[in-house]
Simulated assay, not measured.
Amino acid sequence: MTGYSYQLICDNVPNAVTLTDFGPRVIEVVKVLRRRTGLTLWQGRSLLDRLPATVLDDVSEERAEATVRELLAVGAKAQVRQQA
């Protein structure tokens, strides 16, 4: 046996969006959450009381980055995290 090692490379690594701070425009953040996640307004507002929170899980990098951009645009702090 030779000393070769192999590493599986996957282009579609699942991502998560984590919201860490909702900022000064709570209603706008809740509207983005509703649009991007399907949460009701009440569920979105309730989620803000439990930060940091994962708002999207197991999504493509494009969808995760678009959601983070939209949250940042309304004053929230969010980030994309790759899942193992």
Rank of each mutant, 00 (worst) to 15 (best):
residue 30 V to A: 04
residue 9 I to N: 08
residue 60 S to N: 06
residue 19 L to H: 00
residue 11 D to W: 00
residue 59 V to Y: 00
residue 13 V to H: 15
residue 58 D to Q: 06
residue 46 S to P: 01
residue 15 N to P: 02
residue 60 S to Q: 06
residue 9 I to K: 14
residue 19 L to T: 00
residue 31 K to P: 00
residue 9 I to M: 09
residue 47 L to Y: 09
residue 40 T to E: 12
residue 10 C to R: 05
residue 66 A to E: 15
residue 17 V to D: 01
residue 48 L to C: 09
residue 66 A to N: 10
residue 28 E to V: 07
residue 29 V to Y: 02
residue 13 V to T: 11
residue 47 L to A: 05
residue 10 C to G: 04
residue 65 E to N: 03
residue 62 E to R: 13
residue 59 V to L: 05
residue 16 A to W: 15
residue 25 R to I: 08
residue 34 R to E: 08
residue 30 V to G: 02
residue 17 V to Y: 02
residue 28 E to I: 04
residue 39 L to H: 04
residue 36 R to K: 14
residue 9 I to F: 07
residue 33 L to H: 06
residue 20 T to M: 14
residue 50 R to A: 10
residue 29 V to C: 01
residue 62 E to K: 14
residue 28 E to W: 03
residue 25 R to D: 12
residue 32 V to M: 10
residue 24 P to A: 08
residue 17 V to F: 00
residue 51 L to V: 07
residue 32 V to P: 02
residue 36 R to G: 09
residue 11 D to V: 03
residue 49 D to I: 09
residue 11 D to T: 08
residue 12 N to V: 09
residue 20 T to F: 14
residue 22 F to S: 08
residue 50 R to G: 04
residue 29 V to Q: 02
residue 53 A to W: 01
residue 14 P to F: 10
residue 46 S to V: 05
residue 47 L to E: 06
residue 28 E to D: 12
residue 24 P to K: 15
residue 60 S to M: 08
residue 28 E to K: 09
residue 58 D to C: 04
residue 15 N to L: 02
residue 52 P to L: 03
residue 24 P to R: 13
residue 43 Q to M: 10
residue 38 G to Y: 07
residue 64 A to Q: 14
residue 28 E to Y: 09
residue 29 V to P: 00
residue 60 S to D: 14
residue 23 G to Y: 06
residue 30 V to C: 10
residue 42 W to R: 10
residue 54 T to R: 13
residue 22 F to I: 05
residue 56 L to G: 07
residue 21 D to K: 07
residue 56 L to H: 13
residue 43 Q to V: 01
residue 44 G to R: 15
residue 50 R to S: 12
residue 33 L to D: 07
residue 18 T to K: 07
residue 25 R to P: 05
residue 10 C to A: 07
residue 44 G to K: 12
residue 53 A to K: 07
residue 47 L to P: 02
residue 65 E to H: 01
residue 44 G to E: 15
residue 32 V to K: 14
residue 26 V to G: 11
residue 16 A to L: 08
residue 37 T to H: 08
residue 55 V to P: 01
residue 29 V to I: 04
residue 38 G to W: 08
residue 42 W to T: 05
residue 47 L to K: 03
residue 15 N to T: 11
residue 46 S to T: 13
residue 11 D to L: 01
residue 46 S to N: 11
residue 56 L to C: 13
residue 43 Q to T: 03
